[in-house]
Design a protein around this nucleic acid. Structure first.
Lengths: 291, 291
DNA sequence: CAAGTTATGTGCATTTTCCAACACTACCTG
DNA sequence: CAGGTAGTGTTGGAAAATGCACATAACTTG
């Protein structure tokens, strides 16, 4: 039973009782309706209507079709209502992904957003792998580094996070406060284990600090922060993070070349929806309020 | 939400996950599938799928559509099964109509047919007005007189009922047995009240018997029979009926010119169905067995 | 890393479908 | 009973949907 349009035509014929009436409702010519019915009956091998000069009377098969198609029409109407409304309302899932290191910034914003829009169910994905917008894994992603250039992605500048070199008070008291960059070479450093990070501050570290100074390596941002706080050595940290910890001492101030640009990325297919737009404006407003 | 075919296309895309796969299942070119999806999304104003190089991933709206269309597909499949089978099985209603005077012949046959086909629900219509096959009022009609020539009707010769002139034993004892046709003019007759009957025996009566001899008129066959049995006068009756009543005397034997031809009439739209064909063969076999 | 496979997307020729007009029938109405 | 109305059914010509060929992009595999 392929060709659902012919079923729809037959449905309207059964409702109207006449081919002409159905054609008027459907907005097509009555010849079209006749051909649809004929085609359907040929496929079925059974007459759906008895033809007479005053119209079409459904047979038992036609009456059966009428019942089923009536239900289908209702279902489709409801579906259309749901789907049409869906683009304009802020409901359903909202999937956001970012580097795990931003969770302390994102989580409060997401919670506040969920409270403002109780119909939304927020899912915040932070994992080791990059969640891909192309496959519908997330509505919004926060990405760092050079601007992503995927063709189907809509990229907006989000903010620029300043990065500086910090050490814990304990560590500074023990090892002293470096006065010049030369002094740094006598200090211990915390850095990332995994090599292929092209972040500017990390490149600077590799170029200016002897590798034997790096005495503590970690695999993720959170461990990095804990290591610095515990006095494992000097390390880079976001200003936004460090300011929450008064026990940290700024060893080198943030430089423009180290700054990490953040990007808001959405898939082009979802970017126009009210839900995504609402979230983006909400997020930008919150970030502006914080900083 | 018009254009159910596009919904069906979207359904198969959601199932297959790729446009090409859906196109293969649907038996159309993948460009057609793409255009259907595009048209549907334009109508909805919402993206149903996220496009990427490895296929189409349904959005929330697309997933909603998938659920609804899945149910619809099931419904239509079941419907197709029912309808396709319907033409080949003997089930549902069987509506038969005839003149009320044949009910004593038809009813036993119909009961026997229903017993032979328990899934059939028989409806036997006998009313003053003629039930019209064109409007689907009956599957099979038994008509008398000249062969019906409605364009959409399939007409078969059924039988030829012999008609003779009868009187009750009581009446004959009182008024005597007429020896010649001249003697009939001294007898009383039972006939139909309503004039426009073109039945040959009735025409013969009007032409050969003075109207003052008709002293009892009735409106239907059953009353006619009762009147003759009660001794109201002489009257025409089917041989098949009279033989059940031994108290009747044949005054004039049946003549070929008086015989009433009976026709089996079906609507062309229903004639080919197994139900109608089964009933027609059953009916003919039964009638052959009786006579 | 290069070739093969599998996917989407688009302009153009073609086929299918659809529309418009007409013929015809049945029924209603004054 | 004649005219009006409302329906079905059938034709040629136009419009829309479709198929085809090709371009392109991403993933897989040897």
């Amino acid at each position: 039973m392929d060709n659902w349009d012919e079923i729809r035509t037959a449905y309207h014929v059964a409702r109207a009782g006449t081919v002409s009436g159905a054609a008027q409702v459907l907005g097509v010519h009555h010849a079209t309706v006749i051909r649809h019915i004929d085609a359907l009956e040929d496929q079925m091998g059974v007459r759906l209507f008895q033809r007479h000069a005053r119209g079409y009377t459904p047979t038992e098969a036609g009456a059966d079709l009428l019942r089923v198609a009536q239900a289908t029409d209702d279902q489709f109407s409801q579906l259309a209502g749901r789907i049409r409304g869906q683009g304009d309302t802020v409901t359903g899932d909202l999937v956001v992904t970012s580097l795990a290191s931003f969770s302390h910034v994102m989580t409060p914003v997401l919670v506040k957003f969920q409270r403002a829009h109780p119909d939304v169910s927020v899912r915040y994905l932070t994992g080791s792998r990059l969640f891909r917008l192309e496959y519908g894994e997330a509505h919004v992603a926060i990405r760092a580094g050079s601007p992503p250039d995927q063709p189907d992605n809509v990229v907006q500048k989000f903010s620029t996070e300043n990065i500086a070199l910090f050490g814990s008070k304990d560590y500074i008291e023990q090892s002293g406060m470096p006065a010049t960059e030369e002094d740094l070479k006598t200090h211990r450093f915390v850095s990332f284990d995994q090599s292929p990070t092209r972040a500017p501050h990390h490149v600077w570290l590799k170029e200016n600090i002897p590798s034997e100074c790096v005495t503590f390596t970690v695999a993720d941002d959170n461990s990095m922060q804990q290591a610095i706080l515990a006095g494992a050595g000097l390390g880079f940290m976001l200003d936004r993070m460090a300011c929450c910890h008064p026990e940290l001492v700024e060893v080198l101030p943030s430089r423009e070349e180290w700054a990490a640009p953040l990007w808001l990325v959405t898939h082009v297919d979802l970017h126009r929806t009210a839900k995504v737009q609402t979230f983006l404006t909400f997020l930008k407003a919150e970030m502006a309020a914080i900083s």
